[in-house]
């Protein structure tokens, strides 16, 4: 038997068909069979329930991620990692942290000092702008000038003091 003849005969088997009666009965039985798959979700709202669930789930996950970030997971993880790293020198790390804290304290004190100085300067400038500087007050200058004898350049008090010292 030649191959072409064999294949032709095989193709003729396509004439085999199920009876109409069987096909109809089987079809009805299958289509009336209740499917188990996710019936509740389909009935409940044509996907609305599923969508709501997805939205809720995504919001929940976002919130969880934010809590983890803001809750200082990095710090927790760092401490855990430092404690578990075999090569890490805990003593030097602690002293480095102390140094950094001290630096921060010093810089804070400096900032506090500069803030106070700036405040005092601003007060002085304000007073000066209102009243003028005390050393430039003409009344004060005049009073001081009176106590000084410009006509006689000798000062008796100085002479007395020099005499006492030489005795």
């Amino acid at each position: 038997m030649r191959e072409t003849e064999l294949l032709k005969n095989l193709r003729s088997l396509k004439a085999i068909e199920p009876s109409n009666d069987y096909a109809m009965r089987s079809k009805m039985a299958i289509l009336n069979y209740p499917r188990k798959v996710a019936v509740g979700l389909e009935i409940a709202g044509q996907g609305v329930v599923v969508q709501s669930f997805n939205l809720g789930l995504s919001m929940l996950l976002t919130a969880a991620v934010l809590i983890i970030i803001l809750g200082g997971t990095a710090t927790i993880l760092r401490s855990v990692l430092i404690n578990n790293l075999p090569g890490a020198d805990t003593g030097s790390l602690v002293s480095e942290a102390d140094n950094i804290t001290k630096d921060i304290d010093i810089k804070l004190n400096e900032a506090e000092y500069y803030a106070l100085a700036a405040k005092e300067t601003s007060v002085a400038l304000r007073e000066a702008s209102l009243n003028g500087p005390a050393h430039a007050n003409p009344l004060l200058i005049e009073r001081e000038a009176e106590s000084l004898n410009f006509d006689s350049p000798t000062n008796n008090k100085i002479d007395d003091l020099l005499n006492k010292a030489s005795q």
Partner: peptide, 15 residues
């Protein structure tokens, strides 16, 4: 053949 074909389509419908 009828029974098995029915079973096959029932499984297909279910899954």
């Amino acid at each position: 053949a009828e029974d098995l074909s029915h079973q096959a389509f029932l499984k297909a419908w279910e899954n």
